[in-house]
Design a protein around this nucleic acid. Structure first.
Length: 430
DNA sequence: GCCGCACCTCTG
DNA sequence: AGAGGTGCGG
C-alpha cells in the first residue's frame, strides 16, 4: 500500500491495532474518514484500519493516520501559513516524535503479551485475537475532563459530549474539504483550555448541551485548577496554560500522591482518578475497576461475586480486585487490563461478551451478559423484583479460580479504602 | 466508616 | 433498567 502525502513508519499490527486502540474508550476525540469502496479487491479484503483514516486535532495541527499490517502512515495538516519545503520536513518530524510519545512505541507490546500469557492462562486464551492493544499517553487535562464526562455514561455519548466541548469552547484551527465528498467541509477544533471552561455560565450552557449533572463538575474542576494554578502561560514557548502544565507535573509524583491530587476535583472519584493515572500520568500498574472489569474478575479469576448481580462497588471490593490483578500481571497490570477490557468491549457490541462469559453459544453469551439468573447456577428465570428481594442472600457462585487467591495486606487495603473519603472530606472543609 | 440514594440523558 | 460513577446525607 502506498499513500500519497503520507510518511510511513514500520510497525506491525501486533504492536498497535489502531482501530481498537483509538475507539475503545481511552480517547474520545479521534474522528474517522471511511474510504469509498473502490472495487479494489486488495483494499476491501484488508483489515478495517486499512480502509479508514483517523484524525486528531492538536493545538497547531491535525494529525492523520492510516495503517496496514506492517506500517503506520502519518501526515499533518497545518493551518496557514503553510510550511515551506524547508520547514515541512521539520514539522513532520515533530509529528513523528509526538506519535512515538502518544503511542508509547518504546514499550514492546509483543514481549509484554508474552509475559502476561505465561503468567496468566486466561490472558493466554485471548491474546491472539486481540493483538496490539496498548495504553495511550494522553494529555492529562483533556483526559481529566473527558473522564469526568464518563460517569454513568457510554462511549458514544461521551464522544458527542467531548466533541461539543471542542466545538463550543475552542475556535477552529482549520476547515478543509472532505477528501471524498467535496460538498462537505470538515472543521477541526483543538481541545478547550482550562481558563475557558472555568468561566461562569459554562455550567449552565453545558447543561443545555445535554451534559446533565456533569456540567457543574466540569466547570468547577476547571475553576479549581485555574484558581490554584493560574490562567496565564508563564512559559511563552509552551502553547499550554499553567494548569495544564501542573497536571502534567503529576507524572513526577508517586501513584498514591498523584491519585490524591486528582481526587480533590469534583466529579473525580476512585475510578476516574485511576483512568487518568493510567492513561495520561504514566502509572502503568493502575487498573481502573468498572463493571466490565468486575465481571471479568468474577467469571475468570475467582473473585467473589456481589449480591444478585447488582454490582455494588465498595472501596474494599475495588481494592481487592485491583490488588488481585496487580499480583497476577505485575508492573504493567493496567496495560494488561486494557487488553481484556477492549476484547470484552469489542465483542459486547456485537453479540454479548467475549470474556466475561464462559458460555459457548452466542445466545447463551448474550443471556449471561445481562446477568440473567440462569447463568452459572442454572436456576430458573425470576423477575427483577423477585431478584431484588433475594439479593441480600444470594452470592454468585465461585467459578473455579485459575489462580490461588492471594492474601492481601490488610494495612494497605485500609489505607486505600479511606483515601477517597479522606480527600473528599478535606475538600469540603476548606 | 459504611450504606443507600439521587443524579442527566439515552438506549435496549 | 442500566450505562465504563460520584457526591452527599444518614
Amino acid at each position: 500500500m502506498t499513500l500519497v502525502g503520507f510518511k510511513s513508519f514500520p510497525l506491525p499490527l501486533a504492536q498497535l491495532a489502531l482501530d481498537a486502540v483509538l475507539k475503545c474508550g481511552q480517547s474520545f476525540r479521534w474522528s474517522t474518514i471511511a474510504f469509498p469502496l473502490s472495487g479494489d479487491k486488495e483494499l476491501e479484503d484488508s483489515s478495517p484500519s486499512e480502509q479508514v483514516e483517523y484524525r486528531l486535532c492538536l493545538r497547531d495541527r491535525v494529525v492523520c493516520l492510516r495503517q496496514s499490517f506492517d506500517t503506520l502512515y502519518y501526515r499533518s495538516i497545518f493551518p496557514d501559513p503553510q510550511p515551506t519545503s524547508i520547514t515541512l520536513p521539520i514539522r513532520e518530524a515533530e509529528t513523528l516524535k509526538w506519535l512515538k510519545d502518544y503511542f508509547q512505541l518504546d514499550v514492546d507490546l509483543i514481549s509484554l503479551y508474552r509475559e502476561w500469557g505465561m503468567k496468566d492462562k486466561v490472558f493466554a486464551k485471548f491474546r491472539d485475537r486481540f493483538e496490539g492493544i496498548r495504553i495511550l499517553r494522553q494529555d492529562p487535562w483533556e483526559n481529566l475532563i473527558s473522564f469526568i464526562c464518563s460517569s454513568n455514561n457510554n462511549i458514544s455519548r461521551i464522544t458527542k459530549m467531548v466533541q461539543n466541548l471542542c466545538i463550543h469552547y475552542s475556535s477552529p484551527l482549520i476547515s478543509i474539504k472532505h477528501p471524498f465528498l467535496p460538498s462537505e467541509t470538515l472543521t477541526y477544533h483543538p481541545f478547550p483550555t482550562p481558563s475557558v471552561l472555568s468561566r461562569s455560565g459554562v455550567a449552565l450552557h453545558l447543561r443545555s448541551l445535554g451534559f446533565g449533572y456533569r456540567a457543574e463538575f466540569i466547570q468547577r474542576t476547571a475553576k479549581m485548577l485555574v484558581d490554584a494554578h493560574g490562567i496565564g502561560c508563564s512559559d511563552p514557548s509552551s502553547p499550554q496554560e499553567d494548569p495544564e502544565l501542573w497536571l502534567q507535573g503529576l507524572r513526577g509524583l508517586s501513584t498514591a500522591d498523584a491519585r490524591e491530587e486528582l481526587l480533590k476535583f469534583v466529579g473525580v472519584g476512585r475510578k476516574v482518578a485511576d483512568c487518568i493515572l493510567l492513561m495520561s500520568l504514566d502509572k502503568k500498574e493502575v487498573i481502573p475497576v468498572d463493571t466490565h472489569v468486575y465481571q471479568i474478575a468474577v467469571k475468570h479469576y475467582g473473585m467473589k461475586g456481589s449480591y444478585g448481580g447488582k454490582t455494588n462497588m465498595t472501596p474494599k471490593l475495588y481494592e481487592d480486585i485491583n490488588s488481585r490483578f496487580l499480583s497476577i500481571w505485575g508492573d504493567y497490570a493496567g496495560w494488561a487490563h486494557s487488553v481484556l477490557f477492549t476484547a470484552d468491549l469489542k465483542f459486547f457490541s456485537n453479540y454479548g461478551s467475549a470474556i466475561s462469559s464462559t458460555e459457548k453459544s452466542p445466545a447463551a453469551t448474550l443471556h449471561n451478559k445481562k446477568n440473567s439468573p440462569t447463568s452459572q447456577s442454572g436456576s430458573p428465570v425470576i423477575s427483577p423484583s423477585a431478584r431484588r428481594k433475594k439479593r441480600l442472600h444470594r452470592q454468585v457462585d465461585l467459578v473455579e479460580p485459575e489462580f490461588p487467591t492471594t492474601p492481601k495486606s490488610c494495612k494497605e487495603t485500609t489505607e486505600h479504602m479511606n483515601l477517597v473519603d479522606r480527600v473528599k472530606k478535606r475538600r469540603r472543609n476548606v
